[in-house]
């Protein structure tokens, strides 16, 4: 049985995948999104993560780079404040973090969460966002369009209240931000930049931490 913590981690990365699929372009309906996701082979982007907490006067900022290769390979790499790399490749999930013994495998890695990730990838790679068992997805707004994800399960709702994905108004098909709201005053904003699509990414990127 997957722990709630691992499941939540899995969902977190699933959200990132969803965000990156959306960078490929989206329309006003799920049908548009389904059509446009069909051409995506790979995505890579820089990201900045702002963690807002009531206990903090200023957000805690983390930076890194993200890689995705169809069908289900991911590298989510933090450069600061802690160097850490999550690799998901061919059903295998590993996390490496720089600590006192150098770059070592971190046992908080989301091994169990892979079940969730694969499940979500399977749906999203076919543009079937609305079929997620964990989140209910809605397209909201007129000019300022947003995709709002709300947990279907009570256990997840206690951890994540909602996720809001906002597209870039300047560049068609690129998202501006992903906001993960946990509770009032406690949320994470991910901003993506330098988004590059369908460029060749070597397989080693998804297998090796170095």
């Amino acid at each position: 049985m997957m722990s709630l913590k691992n499941a939540v981690k899995g969902i977190f990365f699933s959200i990132l995948l969803l965000a990156c699929f959306l960078t490929a372009g989206w329309g006003e309906s799920w049908e548009d999104i389904n059509r446009e996701t069909a051409g995506i082979e790979s995505i890579q982007a820089e990201f900045t993560q702002h963690k807002h907490l009531k206990i903090l006067t200023k957000p805690l900022v983390s930076k890194g780079r993200f890689y995705f290769q169809k069908p289900d390979s991911i590298r989510w790499e933090y450069r600061s404040p802690v160097k850490s790399i999550l690799l998901i490749h061919r059903g295998d999930v590993k996390r490496y973090t720089l600590g006192s013994r150098g770059m070592v495998e971190d046992s908080s890695g989301a091994l169990s969460s892979m079940q969730v990730v694969v499940q979500e990838i399977g749906l999203w790679s076919q543009g079937r966002f609305t079929e997620s068992t964990h989140f209910k997805a809605e397209i909201k707004g007129g000019k300022k369009r947003e995709i709002v994800l709300t947990p279907r399960e009570e256990a997840f709702a206690a951890i994540i209240a909602r996720i809001v994905i906002t597209p870039s108004p300047e560049r068609k098909g690129v998202i501006r931000s992903v906001k993960i709201v946990e509770s009032e005053g406690n949320y994470t904003v991910l901003d993506f930049s330098d988004v590059r699509m369908n460029e060749k990414i070597g397989e080693a990127i998804f297998r090796k931490a170095g």
């Binding site: 939540v8 981690k9 977190f12 993560q49 963690k51 907490l53 206990i55 805690l60 983390s62 933090y78 802690v82 850490s84 973090t97 908080s108 951890i159 994540i160 993960i180 946990e182 406690n186 994470t188």
Partner: peptide, 11 residues
């Protein structure tokens, strides 16, 4: 007052 979170920011 202490808050522990994952690197991804989940409390």
């Amino acid at each position: 007052h202490s808050v522990l979170m994952t690197l991804e920011g989940l409390v």
